[in-house]
Simulated scan of single mutants.
Amino acid sequence: MQWRDLPERFGPWKTVYERHRLWSADGTRERLLQQVQAAAAGEIHWDISVDSTIVPAHQHAAGARTQPPPNERSTG
């Protein structure tokens, strides 16, 4: 999602972006998250789903050889 696509109820996207950037840099965002998690202890259930089919990988990321294979026949 792009910053410019935020719903209007959050206010101007530049304000939201700047606040996010500053709060991430000074640790405010992390402290807020910790407080919310502490207040909701036992009520938060994390469900994580990763779909690797949407992550393109370069052909060499699949374990391609970095050196040519050794010769099976010696030429001596």
Rank of each mutant, 00 (worst) to 15 (best):
V55W: 14
V16R: 13
W3C: 07
E72G: 12
P12S: 13
G27R: 00
E8K: 10
P7E: 02
Q2T: 11
L32V: 08
I48T: 01
G27W: 01
L32P: 00
T75D: 10
D26H: 03
A62Q: 10
W46V: 09
M1G: 09
Q35E: 12
H45R: 12
Q2S: 12
V36P: 07
G42C: 05
E30K: 10
H20A: 15
Y17G: 08
M1D: 08
E30L: 10
W23T: 03
T28P: 05
W23C: 06
V16A: 13
W23R: 11
T53L: 12
Q35K: 14
Q2I: 09
E72D: 07
V16P: 07
P68F: 07
E8A: 11
H60L: 15
E30M: 07
T75S: 09
R73N: 09
V16F: 12
T53E: 10
T66E: 10
W13I: 08
G11A: 03
D5W: 04
V36Y: 12
H60P: 08
T66I: 12
T66L: 10
P56T: 12
R4F: 02
G63A: 14
T28S: 11
A40F: 04
D47Y: 03
A64S: 14
W3F: 11
H20P: 04
I44C: 04
S24W: 01
A40P: 00
L6W: 01
I44D: 00
V50M: 00
H58L: 15
R19P: 04
A40H: 02
N71G: 09
I54V: 14
D26Y: 03
I48L: 09
Y17V: 09
H60E: 15
R73F: 10
A61T: 12
G63Q: 13
Q2L: 10
R21C: 12
T15V: 13
G63I: 14
M1A: 13
G63H: 14
T53P: 07
E43V: 00
M1N: 06
E72N: 07
G27P: 00
T15F: 05
I44H: 04
H45P: 00
W23E: 09
Y17C: 11
A25P: 00
R9V: 00
L22S: 06
R21K: 15
H60C: 15
W3S: 04
E43Y: 02
D51M: 01
E18P: 01
I54G: 15
H45E: 00
I48D: 00
A25T: 01
H20E: 08
P69G: 08
A38Y: 08
E43D: 02
R31G: 02
F10S: 00
Q35A: 15
R4M: 03
S49D: 08
H20I: 06
Q59L: 15
G63M: 13
L33G: 06
P68I: 07
A61N: 11
P56Y: 14
R29F: 07
Q35M: 13
P69K: 04
P12M: 07
T53W: 06
E43G: 05
V36E: 09
E18W: 12
F10C: 05
D26S: 03
L33P: 01
L22F: 02
W23F: 03
S24A: 13
Q59A: 15
T28F: 01
R9G: 01
L33E: 10
M1H: 06
W13F: 14
E72K: 10
V55N: 14
W13G: 13
A62S: 15
V36N: 08
P7Y: 01
H20T: 05
A41Y: 04
A39C: 05
E18V: 09
T15A: 10
A61S: 13
